[in-house]
Amino acid sequence: MASSLVCLASLSLVFIFISIPLPYSTAISSCNGACKTLNDCAGQLICINQKCNDDPDVGTHICGRGGGGGSSPSPSPNNCRPFGTLVCKGKSYPKYSCSPPVTSSTKALLTLNDFSEGGDGGGPSECDEQYHPNSERVVALSTGWFDNKSRCGKLIRIQASNGKTTTARVVDECDSRNGCDKEHAGQPTCENNIVDGSASVWNALGLDQDVGKVSVTWSMA
């Protein structure tokens, strides 16, 4: 009889222990970890569909395309994903807050822009609120590379596939989040890997401006 009571008491304790819910908020989840509130996710991760993931508004790319643990994956353009779309003139364009990692030879698309007053760039350059003549070697960088004006006034080195190189000064942002309005001269969002160069940049690289978009590499000068 005594042994039966001991067994029943032990089972009751086990049942009580299992039935007590563990405090959810004490666990800080990493990539793809379970979450209910923003405070449940580590670092700059955000709770999306009850799983911790990169925050598209901040532009973090900690989890990468396939998720994973809490550590950062090797830099890859695939880590930068769109966070929505912008409909402009009946077409949908992805919106980005990030760009591929900057390296000693960053792959990009060089586009042509007129930074002068009345040109296709819209308003004055964001860095200095000035217009720039086509004879000046200046560029605008995609939002992620522009990095909240941190590269304003700095020189970058651009290399074309023909082997020619030139330097250009960063004066503006090629907006990857907004567009199709007066401020952006009615143009849609930029892709997240754009170096938007003046005519002088194209001339220095010996490129045909009629092409409009070519593959290049760039780095900080």
Rank of each mutant, 00 (worst) to 15 (best):
residue 100 P to Q: 08
residue 120 D to L: 01
residue 71 S to R: 13
residue 136 E to N: 08
residue 83 F to A: 06
residue 136 E to L: 12
residue 94 P to Q: 02
residue 143 T to W: 07
residue 135 S to E: 10
residue 112 L to N: 09
residue 124 P to M: 04
residue 40 D to V: 11
residue 46 I to K: 15
residue 93 Y to W: 14
residue 30 S to H: 08
residue 51 K to T: 15
residue 69 G to Y: 02
residue 75 P to M: 04
residue 111 T to C: 03
residue 67 G to D: 07
residue 67 G to R: 08
residue 27 A to E: 07
residue 144 G to E: 06
residue 104 S to F: 04
residue 124 P to A: 15
residue 102 V to D: 02
residue 117 E to D: 03
residue 142 S to K: 03
residue 74 S to W: 01
residue 32 N to V: 06
residue 139 V to R: 00
residue 41 C to I: 04
residue 40 D to E: 12
residue 71 S to E: 10
residue 81 R to H: 09
residue 85 T to M: 13
residue 136 E to G: 00
residue 141 L to I: 11
residue 37 T to L: 12
residue 118 G to P: 08
residue 93 Y to R: 00
residue 46 I to W: 03
residue 125 S to W: 00
residue 48 I to H: 14
residue 128 D to G: 14
residue 33 G to W: 02
residue 139 V to M: 03
residue 40 D to L: 11
residue 111 T to Q: 04
residue 75 P to V: 05
residue 134 N to R: 12
residue 27 A to L: 13
residue 77 P to S: 10
residue 129 E to T: 02
residue 48 I to D: 12
residue 131 Y to L: 11
residue 82 P to I: 14
residue 116 S to T: 11
residue 107 K to F: 10
residue 43 G to W: 07
residue 116 S to N: 14
residue 122 G to M: 03
residue 140 A to R: 04
residue 48 I to K: 15
residue 102 V to W: 02
residue 108 A to V: 12
residue 111 T to M: 04
residue 51 K to S: 15
residue 140 A to C: 06
residue 101 P to R: 08
residue 90 G to T: 00
residue 86 L to F: 03
residue 136 E to Y: 07
residue 56 P to A: 07
residue 72 S to L: 08
residue 87 V to M: 06
residue 97 S to W: 02
residue 52 C to A: 09
residue 135 S to C: 03
residue 144 G to H: 04
residue 106 T to D: 11
residue 76 S to M: 03
residue 57 D to V: 13
residue 128 D to T: 12
residue 128 D to R: 05
residue 45 L to R: 11
residue 33 G to V: 07
residue 135 S to P: 00
residue 36 K to V: 08
residue 120 D to M: 05
residue 102 V to R: 09
residue 75 P to N: 02
residue 135 S to N: 02
residue 95 K to W: 01
residue 99 S to K: 11
residue 123 G to H: 10
residue 79 N to C: 10
residue 75 P to R: 00
residue 125 S to G: 15
residue 115 F to A: 05
residue 86 L to I: 09
residue 57 D to H: 09
residue 128 D to I: 00
residue 89 K to E: 12
residue 90 G to F: 08
residue 91 K to A: 15
residue 141 L to W: 13
residue 36 K to C: 06
residue 64 G to N: 04
residue 60 T to A: 12
residue 141 L to V: 12
residue 58 V to L: 15
residue 116 S to H: 13
residue 119 G to P: 03
residue 110 L to V: 01
residue 93 Y to F: 15
residue 142 S to W: 01
residue 136 E to A: 13
residue 107 K to D: 14
residue 120 D to N: 15
residue 139 V to H: 02
residue 139 V to N: 01
residue 92 S to E: 15
